[in-house]
Write a protein that binds this DNA or RNA. Structure first.
Length: 352
DNA sequence: AAACCGTGGTC
DNA sequence: TGACCAAGGTT
């Protein structure tokens, strides 16, 4: 077991110095840390892999180099730029947070956890990460990586999420006073590259000698998690409607909830039962004779599977009566289309 | 407090 | 091939 937390921290920091990864948001040695870039990267990395976030981070920082620039941009520009990254409430809160930093803090991020926690989209993890990485102040960062490392080092067998407070307390006992930012990133790097969910590389681990789970031969089985509820399937039909100019009808979804504020191809409600003829008539954007396209578009969201049928029609006179916006096919990339809608558009273009 | 909220890669 | 997984937060 770990009987000397200072020694454990030193061992981890030494490992970190020898295995430092070059990531787009990581300041080079000697380079000043920009809290704006730390914050932006932490939001993008929530439940998101490094390869997925990296191109979005480059695009955002090039286009909006400061929090003030981001605050002054129209929300819809952020949603277009965020499209495809998922969890779109993050983009809405990103905008709110940038505006709060400008209006409440004169354009500078606050440097303590309590003040950061007040900002939209910043929770316990992100507040600690910004405090440690951007402001070099002591804070215990607990993300999925840290939970896994701590559960293994201390052989905590109680399942998540209930055991989370216990893991947090244990993690705090190891946090050193020195180099808080490097230590936070070292813990996450250790979890991401060595103490991995499957087949942990214990031979390369700086903590292998005092890891209780490794000693007990149960490292790969930790942390335990309560079984998740099964995902239901919902079904719907999307309307691929073209006007005489060859533009397609799109709509803006409501601000809250699933894909809030994003652009969609008009469709019926998504329910357990596929829509019947009456439902198709109720939801159609124009009263027309629709032709069914072959196949289905399948997509899985965080908590349900979706099966979408697609019907198509050509609007004649009166196309202006439809509710929504008409977008030329070659301008679809300017829209805030989430991945599921990109799938629908591709399917329609391939089969229409 | 449990549900909601995306996506793409991996095995 | 379908379940699991990733630098979580909000309601």
């Amino acid at each position: 077991m770990i009987d000397d937390s200072a020694k454990a921290a030193a061992r981890l920091l030494s490992w970190y110095d020898r295995n430092r990864r070059d990531l787009p948001w990581r300041a080079k040695p000697g380079e000043a840390v920009d809290p704006y870039r730390v914050w932006l990267s932490e939001i993008m990395l929530q439940q998101t892999t490094v390869p997925a976030a990296a191109p979005y981070f480059r695009n955002f920082t090039e286009r909006w180099p400061t929090v003030r620039a981001l605050a002054e941009a129209p929300l819809d520009d952020l949603l277009v730029a965020w499209a495809g990254l998922g969890y779109y409430a993050r983009a809405r809160n990103l905008h709110k947070c940038a505006q709060a930093v400008v209006s409440l803090h004169d354009g500078r991020f606050p440097g303590d956890e309590a003040a950061l926690l007040e900002l939209p989209g910043i929770g316990a993890y992100t507040a600690a990460a910004i405090t440690a990485i951007a402001f070099a102040r002591k804070a215990t960062v607990v993300d999925g990586n840290v939970e896994r490392v701590i559960a293994r080092v201390f052989a905590v067998a109680d399942p998540l999420p209930n055991v989370k407070p216990t893991l947090r307390k244990l993690a705090a006992t190891l946090t050193p006073d020195e180099r808080p930012g490097d230590y936070a990133q070292a813990m996450m790097d250790l979890g991401a590259t060595v103490c991995t969910p499957r087949k942990p590389k214990c031979m390369l681990c700086p903590w292998t000698e005092f890891c209780e789970a490794r000693a007990a031969g149960i490292a790969e089985t930790l942390p335990r998690k309560v079984a998740k509820t099964e995902k239901p399937t919902r079904r719907g039909t999307a309307y691929w409607l073209l006007n005489p100019d060859g533009a397609v009808l799109l709509r803006r979804r409501v601000e809250s909830g699933l894909l809030g504020g994003m652009t969609e191809i008009p469709s019926t409600a998504w329910q357990a039962e596929a829509p019947d003829g009456a439902a198709l008539a109720v939801h159609q954007p124009l009263a027309l004779s629709w032709r069914a396209l072959p196949g289905l578009v399948r997509h899985t969201f965080s908590h349900f599977h979706l099966e979408l049928a697609i019907v198509t029609a050509q609007a004649g006179d009166g196309w202006r009566e439809a509710e929504g916006l008409w977008v030329p096919i070659d301008r679809l990339s300017d829209q805030a289309l989430p991945s599921v809608m990109v799938k629908v558009a591709r399917h329609a273009l391939a089969h229409a």
